[in-house]
Nucleic acid binder design. Structure first.
Lengths: 261, 261
DNA sequence: TGAGCACAACATAGATACAAGTCATGTCCG
DNA sequence: CGGACATGACTTGTATCTATGTTGTGCTCA
């Protein structure tokens, strides 16, 4: 509002992303682009502790973060040039990032028009919910039938404790990160990398749906903690059916909180 | 063996892909790169029947086809330059294609070394099998509980009939395509686009595993047809549990046929 | 003979340049 | 006044060029 006549080369939608926070992309969530397993390239992977692939990766994380936290709302039309200018890069790495984001389903590329931030839709929310319940319930069953339930539940409780220790009013972002970690712990424990990777993408979408809800969603953090606790207990008891039921309530709860205006 | 001393600029691994078959990449399978839904870009998507995004798309389909059918075996190290030369393009669209294939998990990109065709592993086979059974069984349950089982089963039978009509000895590729279509019909009918997209990727991997098996896998086509028929029947009867059981046998059958040397 | 090192060959990363498509605006003609 | 059309701004698609990192080879020196 203050800057009514400020007209830069950079379009409005990209103005709020200053190039200042360059060095360390704050790791929005699961920034790992590949579903891959371990390296083992050919012979000497060199160091394995390399400073990471820079520019393209940076743009990817930068744009993804802004999509997930809602700063780039669905329906927005981006252009490679603008993003490149904003990050002081050439279009090449931007292109790379946009492409990845398209494959992930967060952007949709139109041939000579631009990149559309895919709008969130109620249908998609349903799909995410359904898929998450399916995959996570399955993971619980697998873990239980392999007799690893106690161990996994313990690890989940560790995450839960960290989550409880958070400052309740603030730290919304951190809470979300730990929520992801809680669920990922279980799914990863099932030992299926393909499913884990897919699940991670689902969680991204759910985060985005939560942040893109226009109005303030009622604070469910207290309920979430309680439900997480229940889930751990059910897992410890090896109660797969109960787990599925509570999980359904849990995930639908988040979903429902979004839908009720 | 015959061409021991043939040394071209084009490395051996790319030699068997002549640039002749350019115009129409024979559509290896699910070449659609995005999980997306319908277009509806902003206002006028123009024609919707455009000649498709050319070069990058072409390279993508071209390389993917060769990975899936085993002409580019796991462990192979590609380079953008070679592929660009082979297709008479610049490296830019090749880069794009490689990137997509990395996200899909078929390639692994090493910073300044090249692109590795991800080797198929028994572990991955297990993961694909597990995920397919999970997703497809779930789809069956959904379809049944929505009362659409008869309709969907009919569509699956239509595919099955086309599959039966094929020349048994030849048409291996076509059989595989219809096999994909058979399973995709069910999964798509469940109405979850995210799951459908993921499932499609799983099928790609399974195809690759089948073709990359070094030795000739026993011809299971007769059994496959019979099992498909059983699956249709079970679906018609609304027997979700039976469906899951037979599906497990069916998919594990393919898997097992690969593992038994 | 063998370990260490300089260097050429090669691969990608990123920047830049140019070609081509799309859309909105404004003008001209009926 | 209204519609066809030329035009220019804007966007991506592709090519090319430079910088940099990685690898293996062969030479040097102990």
């Amino acid at each position: 509002m203050t800057c009514i006549y400020v007209v830069l080369n950079t379009p409005a939608k990209l103005r709020n992303m200053s190039t200042s926070d360059r060095s360390h992309p704050p790791a929005p969530a699961s920034t790992s682009p590949a579903p891959g397993r371990e390296p083992a390239p050919r012979q000497s992977p060199s160091g394995e502790s390399a400073p990471a692939r820079p520019a393209g990766e940076r743009v990817y994380a930068w744009v993804k973060e802004r999509i997930l936290d809602g700063r780039l709302p669905g329906g927005e039309l981006l252009s490679e040039g603008d993003a490149a200018t904003a990050l002081d890069l050439s279009r090449t790495p931007v292109r790379e990032a946009f492409l990845r984001l398209e494959v992930e389903g967060l952007l949709r590329l139109y041939p000579k028009r631009g990149a559309l931030v895919v709008p969130v839709s109620p249908d998609e929310a349903d799909e995410v919910t359904e898929a998450r319940i399916l995959l996570e319930s399955h993971a619980a069953e697998r873990v239980i039938e392999r007799g690893e339930a106690a161990d996994v539940a313990a690890r989940m409780r560790a995450v839960l404790d960290r989550q409880r220790a958070l400052d309740v009013p603030a730290d919304r972002a951190r809470f979300s990160t730990l929520d992801r970690e809680f669920h990922a712990t279980l799914v990863d424990a099932a030992g299926n990398g393909l499913i884990s990777h897919f699940y991670s993408g689902l969680h991204d979408r759910q985060v985005r749906m939560a942040t893109s809800a226009l109005r303030r969603v009622p604070d469910r953090r207290t309920e979430i903690l309680a439900e997480h606790d229940t889930l751990c207990t059910l897992l410890e008891h090896g109660d797969a059916a109960g787990f599925r039921a509570t999980l359904t309530t849990h995930i639908n709860g988040t979903h429902g909180a979004l839908l009720d205006s």
